[in-house]
């Protein structure tokens, strides 16, 4: 009789992220096989090379990167993974590019739940599928407990810019109409009201979504007179309008009554003393278009979920270059300034 003595086999089935998951060894591979590949696999990733080798159609390339550190990582209407895909897709699309390929870099905190990671990865795959882009390369690092907040994601993206399209925040011209694709403040207030500590409950859901389908249709209909597009994320519509006005050295005048705000978002903003124009959005679009074509653009936008509530909120003017002015319901005017950093709930 022989006794085979073996060292105990290392545990391969973990419930949480281990330092070794990022060390490049067997656990790294297991993480790849168990969590990432089932959802993300495609002809590029399947090769497991260190780089993706891409054939790009001719034309100018748009390239962008963004890092996502949102807290909480799951919020009503989405999660950090979905946000990371849609955000980068939108950054490409607003430049007039057709988004094609994405990369994803993950920083995971030791102890982070693998089940939650899988949910995030799965929704990234779904978001990429919806937006018609491919996740072609990626990376994962693990840091010690307390060195990051559960999960950070960086996504970069490449797209090809349509021939003849020249969108830039410097292109605004006096007389342009300013279109907003829908209600403001949904994402930021969804995040704020779902943070623990604030005694709030709301059913506000994030507007997190990819805009490339709608933008593509808009450019099909009106290829040359859309002058600029922006997705008003951090700093909200106020920050975006200010950037546009400053970059183009023009004034922008908007009308208070036209700005769409969902009722519960408005309620939460009133309670917390926050201006909805300063609150972040993740699936909205601000468009500057020659006034004559504004109607056509609106019509196209309203065919899409993300543009159903699209409205003209104002116009580009010669006066007060670099400044955004709002006409109030009472006929008075006030400056819409850049918000100052983080939006804080106030009592006074």
């Amino acid at each position: 009789m022989t006794i085979v003595q073996t060292c105990p086999a290392p545990i391969m089935q973990h419930e949480t992220v281990q330092m070794a998951h990022g060390a490049g060894g067997r656990l790294s591979q297991a993480l790849m096989q168990r969590v990432f590949m089932p959802h993300l696999h495609n002809s590029f990733l399947d090769l497991l090379d260190d780089q993706a080798k891409l054939d790009l159609p001719s034309g100018r390339i748009a390239f962008t990167t963004d890092t996502y550190v949102v807290s909480p990582i799951f919020f009503p209407g989405g999660n950090i993974g979905e946000l990371a895909v849609n955000g980068t897709v939108n950054d490409l699309a607003v430049g007039g590019a057709k988004p094609l390929y994405l990369s994803a870099g993950f920083v995971l905190e030791e102890g982070f739940s693998l089940a939650e990671l899988e949910v995030i990865v799965k929704s990234m795959a779904e978001a990429a599928h919806r937006a018609g882009v491919m996740m072609v390369t990626g990376d994962t690092k693990v840091v010690g407990k307390g060195q990051c907040d559960r999960i950070f994601i960086n996504t970069s993206g490449i797209g090809v810019i349509r021939e003849g399209v020249n969108l830039s925040c410097r292109n605004l011209k006096a007389g342009d109409s300013i279109i907003l694709s829908g209600t403001v403040g949904d994402h930021g207030m969804a995040i704020m009201t779902s943070r623990t500590g604030l005694s709030f409950q709301s059913r506000i859901t994030s507007d997190c979504g990819a805009l490339n389908g709608m933008i593509s249709a808009m450019l099909d209909a009106v290829p040359f007179t859309i002058h600029a597009m922006r997705d008003p994320t951090r700093g909200g519509v106020a920050a975006t309008l200010n950037e546009l006005a400053q970059s183009s050295s023009v004034g922008i005048e908007i009308h208070e009554t036209t700005i769409p705000v969902k009722p519960d978002v408005r309620g939460a903003c009133e309670l917390l003393g926050i201006d909805p124009l300063h609150v972040a959005n993740e699936g909205k679009l601000v468009v500057a278009v020659a006034a004559g074509d504004a109607g056509k653009v609106l019509e196209v936008m309203r065919n899409f979920d993300h543009g159903r509530d699209a409205v003209i909120i104002g116009s580009v003017v010669d006066d007060h270059p670099g400044m955004v002015v709002m006409r109030t319901v009472y006929g008075s005017r006030r400056i819409i300034d850049l918000p100052l950093g983080e939006q804080l709930p106030r009592i006074c």
Binding site: T328, Y330, G331, S332, R333, R334
Partner: peptide
């Protein structure tokens, strides 16, 4: 007052 431009009116 200032937000609504009441002083201007």
């Amino acid at each position: 007052i200032i937000r609504n431009g009441i002083d201007q009116l």
